[in-house]
Design a protein around this nucleic acid. Structure first.
Lengths: 339, 339
DNA sequence: ATGAAAGCGCTAACAG
DNA sequence: CTGTTAGCGCTTTCAT
């Protein structure tokens, strides 16, 4: 090994050592290329010895397609989101794509990050965070860059989307809460509007209105556990006339429960029924046994990945919207189930 | 707009429309390049009109450096891991790097993924999952590819690492548990060995031995909540002669607590003291108030990113090991604190 | 089956 | 300050 130079080894080096042309080493690393088994082995051997690796970026430049995809996500350290991202990454990888992960912090402009992705020639980008501006969505469309939005509503029919059926979510929550005993309801949802979480709360309120049930509205500062814990300070004050509460997010529900237990010794479901939404892992933990509405992360992400793959395949296909159905999960914070 | 062809627009197109050379458009997009304000604006305008974006991959090919980095992580949907990854991604991004996220699934070969990163000319890779084989670590070193390992132990002094002080962790757990009343201890840790989690359990046991305190060992199937819940079935049987238990992971501790409460009506800390490790968000939740040993994810990841940046800067610097100190967090599952 | 040559989109070195 | 030239590492016609 005299050639331990610092220069990265290129196909040229391999070609020389194998005594063939650069084309041959390219072929040796290309599935189903026109090359004899003998030559291929010769090349592979030389490559091995030299520690050669195909430079995918250069390859992409030539073939005019990269197998990079973008994932832009916010609140990555939140149970539901991290689940989504894990599945998405895994799924992309299993399809031969490599995900670039761009995390959105509060105050960031999502569009900016989507825009950055464009610089990397990604095959497509999936966003599960705040909604990018119509402008950037337009730009993606113009550049024929596949873009799929998760739980951002059908954005003016301009991008592929996967979203939960917010209507169904609201109605499900209502039914779960009122099935056993009608009552005086409440809902807690975050102040900052967002398609899916504000949407389900709105739908719930609407349903109450239709059914002529009074509903108190509690606005939390965010959709976190801490926010639930905080707002529960107010809920506690209304405990005497509230039967059941729908928390727009499991995390919110968990915070609410802990605060109520701590300050008012509330028992669930006897003193208060509660229903969450998402079905994060913690909802099923023994300390909570939260009844909730399951939003199947796997189904959701798989649908999104499929949409993206299809659009990469056929950029001119009509826009798709996948409306995800929800499942009620009866655990121990509601009085009875449907049977 | 007659030129709405499908062809992606290149610097050549922009150059022509702006009436300058390709070099000029390159300069226009390069920080601190030698170009007049007037020309730059002309180029920028043309670029804007055409919807031009610099192709970073091509740029990287030329400048022989990409601003891509790799993150390989397992169990991404776990509280601590997702926190690490969020911080890492955020940190890399803020330094101008774009992280490619490769998730490791059980049974995967970590080395394979590190290897894949090499194809993308990443500036470096951070791994927080199972330990890659010495072989791949060697290869990275040979290719002068910066590699930093989090909580994988000092791998034969062959890669930069950041890890917790397992010794301190074990001793801290011991002290937290025995400070108020000496007793009969137990430890639960997963079967599958891993540097940091097995390490802290071993250190705890060792400390008990030195101090002449008996310690029961419970082996769980993994480090998850569910595994803790399961193994607590056995712990329950020994409840009469155990005072305190150290769970190698917060998640494990939470599972243990829930099971013990459900089946034996155990009260913490009165019936049993418990100490976890990591300090995930859930440890602080009202249903648990788990006393634990904090492993500061932010500090840890920042240290790792810094190591990597430094190595990119200077590939030949001596290997670094960052030994992270731990902090005891006294909540309500231990009897008293240090004061 | 193999090699020569052209070129993907970009930047850097060199003239002017 | 600007244009010309020469590649970065790779794949791909097109001949042979």
């Amino acid at each position: 090994m005299t050639d331990d130079h610092n220069k990265p080894v290129t196909s040229f080096d391999v070609a020389r050592r194998a005594g063939v042309s650069r084309s041959m080493v390219s072929r040796a690393f290309t599935e189903g290329a026109n090359i004899s088994e003998k030559s291929r082995e010769k090349v592979l051997k030389a490559a091995e010895e030299l520690g050669y690796r195909v430079n995918f970026l250069a390859r992409g430049l030539q073939t005019r397609q990269s197998n990079l995809v973008g994932i832009v996500a916010s609140s990555l350290d939140t149970p539901f989101r991290s689940r989504q991202v894990r599945i998405a990454a895994q799924e992309f990888i299993s399809h031969g794509y490599r995900p670039i992960l761009l995390t959105v912090e509060p105050g960031d402009d999502v569009g900016q990050w989507v825009s950055v992705m464009l610089n990397y020639n990604v095959a497509g980008v999936m966003v599960t965070s705040a909604t990018p501006s119509p402008k950037i969505i337009q730009e993606c469309r113009k550049l024929r860059m596949p873009l799929v939005l998760i739980n951002r509503g059908k954005n003016q029919d301009i991008a592929d989307t996967v979203q939960i059926d917010v209507q169904q979510a609201g109605e499900l929550a209502f039914t779960m809460l009122t099935r056993s005993r009608a009552g005086r309801l409440a809902v807690v949802h975050p102040q900052i509007p967002s398609y899916s979480v504000t949407g389900r709360a709105r739908a719930f309120i609407e349903k109450c209105r239709i059914e002529n049930i009074e509903v108190d509205e509690f606005i939390s500062t965010s959709q976190s556990y801490a926010a639930g814990y905080d707002i529960a300070g107010n809920i506690g004050l209304s405990l005497d006339h509230i039967d059941g509460v729908f928390c727009a997010t499991d995390l919110l529900a968990l915070g609410v429960m802990d605060r109520l237990r701590a300050d008012w010794n509330t028992r669930f479901p006897d003193d208060l029924q509660v229903v969450g939404c998402d079905d994060i892992e913690q909802a099923g933990w023994g300390a909570y046994h939260l009844s909730t509405i399951r939003q199947d992360a796997e189904e959701q992400v798989l649908a999104a990945v499929t949409q993206m793959l299809e659009r990469i395949e056929n950029p001119d296909a009509p826009i798709q919207h996948y409306n995800q159905r929800l499942t009620p999960i009866f655990r121990k914070t509601t009085l009875s189930n449907y049977d």
